[in-house]
Simulated scan of single mutants.
Amino acid sequence: MDVRYSVNPRDFKRYTTEEVRREFLIEKVFEPDAVTAVYSHVDRMVTFGCMPVSRTVALDDGIDVWHNFGTKYILERREIGIFNVGGPGVITADGAEYRLGYKDCLYVTMGTKDVTFRSEDGSKPAKFYMVSAPAHKACKTTLLTIADARKVPCGSMEQANDRVINQFIHPDVLETCQLSMGMTSLKPGSVWNTMPAHTHERRMEIYFYFEIPDEDVVFHMMGQGDETRHIVMKGEQAVISPSWSIHAGCGTSNYTFIWAMGGENKTFDDMDDLRKTDLK
């Protein structure tokens, strides 16, 4: 397991490009028949990836659960949100099977002991992208298809940010302990996300970018509003955003991204907005 520690925003100002990428960028989310895991000490959020090709893969495959989590199984004190961004796949959670198509989501509650993943067709493997947050209460494991998501249009073509926010693991859609997740799709011709930028001091956020053409990239903006930095990202990569950092991006094409939040609360208007003209 890759462990990332918290970063002081004052120290961050002196980071080189290599250091910024090493601390915040998750370059490789999917590997065949394996689970990747990045543990962030920012709100103790964990990012997982699983691409089963030739076998069924367990969530704890290759992970020293006691050493990394101090529990008997990963979700003993955690909840997790799982999106499929590949071919059709099946998740089994404590014996119950859930079939996920492209862009479908499964919320799995705290206390779920056994979670496994398989693809329906190994030549077109499922790609399960996951984020887990600490939890103190059990909720209901729930499958949410892309059709079930609450659609919130926002932005405009004039500002190059015409997009639809798909709310999946969200207080208006599903009860959870503290995890929130959703997916935002930009329309052709739009390239900006989350602009004007903001921070939310009481919550961190993780972005996972996909549906980026091979020849295109996203410039993900981060840092404090008065001294920003950027990370150049390719498709199927994720980035960790501490609570003190803005999180916005501009692509050389339109794209889709999955956002995940965890922290002090789930109040979506609890944010500190920054005027575009005040960014530096």
Rank of each mutant, 00 (worst) to 15 (best):
F257I: 02
D273N: 15
R275G: 14
T184F: 01
F83N: 02
N161P: 01
Y102I: 09
F257E: 05
R99K: 13
K140P: 08
R99G: 05
Q167R: 15
F30S: 04
L106F: 03
A248N: 06
N84W: 11
T141S: 15
G223F: 00
G89I: 00
D214W: 10
G86V: 08
V218R: 00
V191H: 08
T176P: 05
T199V: 02
M181W: 03
E23H: 12
D114T: 11
I26H: 02
M51W: 04
E79D: 08
R10Q: 13
H230G: 11
T36S: 13
A160V: 12
Q224C: 09
V38G: 07
N68L: 10
T256I: 09
V46R: 00
H220T: 05
V35W: 07
E236H: 11
K266H: 10
L100Y: 08
G101E: 15
V108P: 11
R14S: 15
I74C: 09
K137V: 09
S123N: 14
F219W: 12
M130R: 04
D60G: 00
A37E: 09
A37F: 09
T252F: 01
L59R: 04
D273V: 11
N254V: 03
P88D: 14
G223W: 00
H247G: 00
K140L: 13
K127V: 08
T184Q: 01
R202I: 05
T109D: 11
G111Y: 01
S180Y: 06
S243H: 08
Q224A: 11
I165M: 13
D216K: 14
D11T: 12
Y102N: 10
M51P: 00
F83A: 00
Y39T: 05
S6G: 12
M1V: 10
R275M: 13
S40N: 09
A248C: 07
T145W: 10
I80T: 01
S185F: 06
T194Y: 06
A160I: 11
E236M: 10
E97Q: 14
V191L: 06
D11A: 13
D94N: 05
H200G: 03
D121T: 02
S123D: 13
T71S: 15
T267A: 13
A37G: 07
F69A: 00
K127H: 11
V108I: 14
V173L: 12
A126S: 07
V173C: 12
L186N: 00
T71P: 07
F128I: 02
L279N: 07
L144R: 04
E264R: 05
Y207I: 00
R4H: 06
M157E: 08
T116E: 10
L144P: 03
D216Q: 12
D2L: 14
V115S: 05
D43Y: 10
V65F: 03
N254K: 05
L25P: 00
E236P: 04
S6E: 15
Q237S: 05
T92P: 07
H41E: 12
K137T: 08
D278Q: 07
L59G: 01
G89A: 02
I91G: 03
A238S: 15
P88H: 06
L179E: 03
D272W: 11
G87W: 04
Y209R: 05
A260T: 04
E23A: 12
D226P: 05
N166V: 04
E211H: 09
R10Y: 13
Q167T: 06
D269Y: 14
A133S: 15
S40M: 07
T176C: 08
K234I: 04
I258D: 09
K113C: 03
N193P: 04
